[in-house]
Structures are given as C-alpha cells and as structure tokens.
C-alpha cells in the first residue's frame, strides 16, 4: 500500500517515466499508523459505541422518572430487567443508558472549556516568555495547588447543581494540565528554524502563534484532551456521588449515590456494579484513544 508504484505503461525498451510517490498528508499518515494501534482502535470503538448509546438512548430505553415498576423493586438482573431494578423499581439498564448522555456531555464540555482556557495561556506564556510567562504560569500553578475537590463542592453548592454547572466547574479546574503541556511544546517549537523563517518573510505575529506554533503543538494537546475527558467523567461521578450532581438528570454517579443513600447497596450489588463498569469502560476508552493518538503521532513510540 505504501510502496512506490511504478507507472503502468511500461513499454518494453523504455524506462518507466517516473516513480510516483503516493500522496501523503500528515492526516493520512496519522490514520495509517493509528489503524495499526490496537489499543487506540479499541478506545475509538468504545467511545463510538458509547456515543451511539447516548444519541439513541430514547430509542433503546424509556427515560427513567418517578417511580418505576413498584412490584418489581430491587430485582437482580433478569430477562426483563437486564441490570436489575433499584429501590423504587426503576430499571438500572435504562439509568445506565441515559447516564451515558450526561457523562459524555460533561466530558466533552469540560474538555472544551479547559482547552479554551489552557491553550491560550500556554501558547502566550510559552511564546512570549518573560513577564507573560511568569504571570501565566503563576496562575496555572495556583490552580494546580488548589484543593480541587472541596472547591468543586463549594462551587457546585453556590452555582446550583445543574449538569452544565458541573461541567463548567470541572472544566475550570482541569485546564492547568493543558496550559503546561501547551507551554512546554511552544517553548520547543518557538526555537525551530521554520518559526524564524516565518518571521523572516514578514509573517504576522498572531499568525505565527496561532497557525504555525499551535498546529505543531497540537498532538500532545489532543492526547491530553482525551485524558481530561476521562478524568472529568470521574470527577462528575464523584460529585454526583456526594449528592452534588443534577437530580433532574441521570448520571452514573447519581445511580451510585442513590444506591448508597437508600442503604441497599450491601444487598443489591447490581446497583453499584453496572454504573461502575460503565464508568470504567468510558474512562479506559478515552485513555486508550489517547495512547493510540500519541503513538500514531510520535514515531518513537510506534511499534513495528
């Protein structure tokens, strides 16, 4: 596939006109190497499956509300209720499916927020250095040393427990990692000769920063973004478990919280097991995707 192909018309006695190299763009190269990476592909399929579940949740199951099948409370997994029922007779399967929406929403939103804050801070402090860098990194370090969980709890209590609020709060505390990675990459790229060459032909500084530097710094940012998606799903589950989740929407943490607060968790293991598996699958999928992207982009990590 990636071998050079000779031009077909090879008239006897004449040499082939040219040896054509296949067109390779960085994107094609990336796809080629990513496809060879088993973990990455597993992660990608895991996330795609969860995405499909989230999108088609209404078609797969009914939205669990109020009281469920009260004659079938706390049923263990069976043919009718695959994942069993909880203390008000609601299907755990339905809850887990609908919880996928919330978890993915939180993961994506908080990752986007941390990119929006972290990338500019990292880029500018890496590119300009000096005072800009001191200020940018001071803010980043302060955020890294903050006791995140208590602050998240306080903010969730103050802002109210809407699912968007939860996502924003998690995003506000996840960006320092992105800022650091972006800055580290920028510091290396800034010294590259193609940046100096870009300056030498009169490229605008804003273009150098946001086109030339950012695009080259993108791979590690992307990898970190997938990791942040995983950790923010964990954070959301934690907050929901502490009772700070959105009571109006089902998240995996909320299911665990219900199981815990009703005190049935000792008898009804299925209440804890299935949402936990969902969380593990999602976080692992994001991490695998991150590993896959990283290895596909970084030739030194590629396995033959």
């Amino acid at each position: 596939m990636e071998n050079t192909t000779l031009v077909k018309e090879n008239v006897p006695g004449s040499l082939p006109l040219s040896i054509q190299q296949p067109r390779t763009s960085p994107l094609r190269e990336f796809i080629k190497h990513f496809r060879r990476n088993r973990l990455g592909v597993i992660g990608l399929f895991g996330i795609l499956a969860l995405l499909l579940l989230a999108v088609f949740a209404p078609a797969i199951s009914d939205r669990p509300t109020g009281y469920g099948d009260v004659t079938n409370m706390l049923q263990p997994p069976n043919a009718q209720y695959w994942f069993g029922t909880d203390s008000v007779g609601l299907s755990i399967f339905d809850q887990v499916i609908w919880g996928t929406r919330v978890s993915l929403y939180v993961g994506l939103t908080s990752a986007v927020i941390s990119i929006l804050i972290g990338v500019p801070i990292g880029l500018l402090s890496g590119y300009y250095g000096g005072r800009v860098s001191h200020i940018g990194m001071a803010i980043t370090d302060i955020f890294l040393t903050l006791p995140v969980l208590p602050l998240m709890i306080i903010m969730a209590a103050v802002l109210g427990t809407g699912i968007s609020n939860i996502a924003i709060i998690i995003g506000l505390f996840s960006w320092p990692q992105i800022a650091r990675v972006t800055r580290a990459e920028t510091l290396a790229i800034r010294e590259k000769q193609y940046i100096e060459a870009a300056r030498a032909i009169g490229t605008k500084e804003s273009k150098i920063i946001f086109r030339h530097v950012l695009l080259n710094a993108f791979p590690p940012i992307l990898v970190n973004m997938t990791i942040i998606m995983g950790t923010s799903v964990l954070s959301e589950a934690g907050l929901s478990f502490l009772g700070l989740g959105d009571p109006m929407s089902w998240s995996w943490g909320t299911i665990l919280q219900n199981a815990h607060s009703t005190g049935v968790i000792i008898h009804a293991w299925w209440l804890a097991l299935f949402p936990s598996i969902a969380i593990v699958v999602l976080v692992l999928s994001f991490n695998f995707l991150g590993i896959g992207i990283n290895e596909a982009l970084n030739p030194r990590l590629r396995k033959r």
Binding site: Q193, Y194, A197, L215
Partner: peptide, 16 residues
C-alpha cells in the same frame, strides 16, 4: 529576505 543554513527545518512541516 533571508534564507537559512538548515533547509531541512526551515519549512513548517504541517503545511504544504
């Protein structure tokens, strides 16, 4: 205009 010593690294690798 200026041209540099290292032609291998004077062009941005992510653009055509």
């Amino acid at each position: 205009s200026m041209i540099f010593q290292e032609p291998m690294s004077s062009l941005n690798p992510v653009y055509t």
